[in-house]
Design a protein around this nucleic acid. Structure first.
Lengths: 343, 343
DNA sequence: TTGTAAGCGTTATCAG
DNA sequence: CTGATAACGCTTACAA
């Protein structure tokens, strides 16, 4: 692993100045003869431009960071899958940060923007605290937030609309004739938990359905907890005929427990998940799920950021990606549970 | 977005030289008074070290790249999930490359190592070509390959053992009394396809089972194709009683088709997948699957690379991660298909 | 203990 | 068209 050649090495070899080497390498007008000599020397030495030195001079790293709460979460991965190709096509490298759902880590990432190792940042925070807002106001590089920031925050912002999402699901269940529609939610002190809880209440109201405390069960955003929550719910409200689950994992847990309890899905109980992850299509019965557009949000965020990197300095933009209900077997399909499968 | 302060700005403000600023910032012995002045100035100005300038001087970027074929593939994501925290804990940033299953892109990544924007690379190539080997020999930074490289290649290497993996699965099916065990494979011109095909044949031989062409069906590594392949297989060999699927997606497709055909799983046909992705646990019936240790391989690779980054220059190491059969309902569990769930 | 100055590898300005 | 030369922001001898 000998020390790599630099333009100085090439200059010596080609018998020209480093300035000429640089010019040739950058395609600036140069005499043919010089070009040939430099190219030959570069080839022989296996020269590769030093990105760090370039960045120092040009003040551009051609890197963009994406900060998410958790590399394991399929919703973030859906964003990542969209962000990556967009950035790649534009010639940017992707630096990945996983903040482990720790606010301090997010602030840290924002702070590290000052180190100038990236040209911009896409961040999907759990919730936006005052500390976030402060750092954002002082950010030394363009930032796009995937999530919801307060009105007037001077930052590009791509939002989901989980309120409408919940309503889509509840309306769907209602249109299937369900009237005892339960909510299996995550912790209400998280942004998703809180907003989905409120949206559920609102949706019932619009439909003229009564709100019943017994029909709301709180667990956590994981499969096992979701299952446990549903088990309790079945005790308390045995007449439940539909479950609105705050994410797909909870819904999967619900399917487990319903199956064990001998309730048929969707005949006895219809189930809707949220996020429309890969798991929804994989489960059986396949899971109806509300997509909050993770993929679209990722793409939009990447494109917004690229605009900024290209010098766009218009006022901050807010994009809201509409939710979409994906209907599958858990609310509309055939039932498992009696005779062997048909068709 | 005013231009950020540099050590020069601070030096002026504090009335000291840039050398003193640098010393204070790096915790080198300095007079208390000077420390105070510098810290105060740095605080007031909101100074943050410029990572690029640092890197140029120190020849260390504190970045590591991970190159995978496809950000969408759960097996790579399992690696990523392990790699990320290991690197983070060691103070490295993660640069992600998705090569879209294009060999030229992989070579490109290897080449770009010369740009010195990272201190090292973890790569999981589709297959290792001569071009790879050439670049690896000339690599200007430590590289760890997840996959199999030829004996004697001067590169750290973390391998899976899909041969043993296939045997575990076939043995398992055999021990359940299955004798008509089919293989649903991906394309044989890929490394996984080829090795799994050979391993299947070998496993049958060891068990004294005859090899039957009708029991081998080739499709692609996706759900729909897997399903189609199984449909054909059922026509050709209706007496099949077990399916060894070359990955989980194929196995999911198999479940779809078996259900549609009225075959009970596992009673009529047992199914084993491979890779043990999240989908295996999510499906119903849950899918027995051979884990090739993606997570462990990722972790091992990251640790190997860190050793190198810490100056370890011992001979290249080869680590082989043993496969593990995870038994779930599709080979051992209860059946769906007659009465509603019990338990 | 502190300051001066020489790089790290590029790009870009300015005379020649 | 080309060659010195000065940055970019930082670290680190070497002197003072």
């Amino acid at each position: 692993m000998a020390d790599g050649p630099t333009i100085t090495t090439i200059a010596e070899r080609a018998g020209v100045s480093i300035a000429s080497v640089s010019r040739v390498l950058n395609g600036l007008p140069t005499r043919q003869e010089t070009v040939r000599k430099v190219m030959a020397a570069a080839d022989e030495l296996g020269y590769v431009r030093n990105a760090v030195a370039r960045s120092l001079k040009s003040r551009r790293t051609h890197q963009v960071a994406f900060a998410m709460a958790d590399v394991g979460n399929p919703a973030y991965l859906a964003m990542l899958r969209q962000i990556q190709p967009v950035l790649k096509a534009a010639g940017y490298r992707l630096v990945l940060h996983s903040t482990d759902a720790v606010v301090a880590d997010e602030i840290d990432v924002l702070h590290s923007l000052g180190e100038r190792y990236v040209d911009g940042l896409i961040m999907s925070p759990l919730r936006v605290t005052d500390a976030h807002l402060q750092m954002l106001a002082a950010a030394r590089a363009p930032v796009v937030i995937i999530g919801t920031v307060p009105e007037g925050t001077p930052v590009d912002n791509v939002r989901a609309d989980s309120r409408t999402g919940v309503r889509l699901a509840v309306d769907h269940l209602h249109s299937l004739g369900r009237r005892r529609i339960a909510l299996v939610n995550g912790p209400p002190d998280t942004w998703p938990g809180a907003s989905r809880g409120a949206a559920y209440r609102e949706a019932l109201e619009q439909l003229g359905l009564p709100y019943d405390d017994d029909l709301v069960q709180i667990g956590d955003f994981y499969r096992a907890q979701g299952g446990r929550a549903v088990a309790e719910l079945l005790e308390r409200a045995p007449d439940v005929d539909a479950l609105m689950c705050a994410n797909d994992l909870i819904a999967l847990g619900a399917l487990d427990v319903l199956r064990a309890a001998g309730r048929r899905v969707p005949d006895d109980v219809a189930v809707v998940g949220m996020d429309d992850t890969d798991l929804a299509a994989a489960s059986w019965p396949s899971l109806s799920s509300v997509s909050l557009g993770s993929a679209e949000r990722g793409k939009a965020a990447a494109e917004l950021l690229l605009d900024r990197l290209n010098g766009d300095d218009a006022a901050p933009r807010v994009i809201t990606v509409p939710p979409r209900l994906v209907v599958r077997a858990s609310t509309a399909g055939e039932t498992y549970g009696h005779e062997g499968g048909r068709t």
